[in-house]
Write a protein that binds this DNA or RNA. Structure first.
Lengths: 208, 208
DNA sequence: TACAAAGTGTATCATAGTGTATAAAAAAAG
DNA sequence: CTTTTTTTATACACTATGATACACTTTGTA
């Protein structure tokens, strides 16, 4: 399988993959156009035609595009998707709102699997250091509103992104710290609260 | 192999090699024409045909030219080895596959030591300028699949040869940019990915 | 409901650059 | 001089790109 791709075509595939990951659909011709630096929709349409011809894209009956044989994450050819890095959480706003996103970091698709939404969160404090999460680490979080007992979850408590261990009790939810610092206390919540996501991996602090 | 070359043919090879090293492609027929002082594209095309006939150039299936061997390599006193120059990376194929090699460039054996495999790669962008690697520089890479923390490695990320600093963390691998441009982000990968090689030297871009 | 605005994919035509081919002109060799 | 080789001047087909237009769908609003 030796598919000769031009630079533009490779850029297009990566752009489409990211768009799929974050918005759940493929970009329009004009969005691809501006993203690739073209000035005519025709040029982007031609790129798409070429990719369809090469069997990488497919056009469904309803006109939508589908990315076919892209996701083969072998160890030699690493593929990545851009995951938003959430910095400070702004009050009263969804955690993934534009104003909370500091930037996008490429993450291997073997960590951030297409089909789910992820974000990266910078850990603060030492409330989870027994779980290997220390101040400044990056936490890769899969966005979902449900959790199992023992999961490390991200929750919005008092307009702050909190990382704790999830424990569902008889009629309430407890968020447990995992720290050797005794000053951190469990947080007790009612059952009808929502988690923002579940931690998948942590990346030790990157000194930049 | 004593290939007798006319002056014009030798000039053409030098010109083509410079284009390969600095622009990453072979010149068009008309550019060769003006460079050699011809006034008709036919003349330059004839030169190319002759060089193909002598086995110095090769025409690929897609029409691009490839520099098979370099004239300097014929000179006995020059203690050089021909190192493949890798251009666009074809997806799903080893980085040193024939279709990725634009040509061969003579490099001193004091840099490319016999016993290892090397290739040359053209740096793109400014993501490593703090490490002294700037856009357009040629990077001499020793081919190997292991790396130490802090090594400047070449990896295949999203069908592109990426040059970054290698950092192995607890449960993942991070490729760090070394730039004073903040827009470059680290790339987060899993442990089961392979490095293509380690940068040995960089050859700064020269003006043509 | 009706209508306007914006966004969608697609098509048309023009332009510039590409490699290549043809035949005439010029130069070199006999 | 004639013959052969090299160089020139064009022409042709092909590709990539750009500017623009057209019909269609969605969406918000009156």
């Amino acid at each position: 399988m030796k598919t000769q791709l031009s630079q533009r075509q490779a850029d297009a595939i990566r752009y489409i993959r990211n768009w799929l990951m974050h918005k759940g659909k493929t970009p329009s011709v004009r969005e691809l156009m501006t993203a690739l630096g073209y000035k005519s929709p025709r040029s982007a349409a031609l790129i798409i035609e070429k990719l369809i011809q090469k069997g990488i894209l497919r056009k469904r009956s309803n006109g939508d595009l589908q990315l076919i044989k892209d996701i083969d994450a072998d160890s030699v050819h690493a593929r990545t998707v851009d995951i938003p890095l959430v910095g400070m959480v702004t009050c009263g706003v969804p955690i993934l709102a534009q104003e909370n996103i500091e930037g996008y970091i490429p993450v291997s698709v073997s960590l951030a699997k297409p089909g789910f939404k992820y974000f990266l969160l910078r850990a603060k404090g030492d409330s989870m250091n027994k779980a290997g999460i220390n101040d400044g680490d990056l936490i890769l979080v899969r966005q979902q509103s449900t959790a199992q007992n023992g999961d490390i979850v991200v929750a919005l408590i008092d307009d702050e992104a909190t990382v704790k261990e999830f424990q569902h009790r008889k009629n309430c939810v407890v968020l447990m710290p995992r720290s050797n610092n005794k000053s951190h206390k469990p947080i007790i919540l009612t059952e009808n609260f929502q988690v923002q996501g579940v931690a998948v991996t942590t990346i030790p602090k990157l000194e930049v």
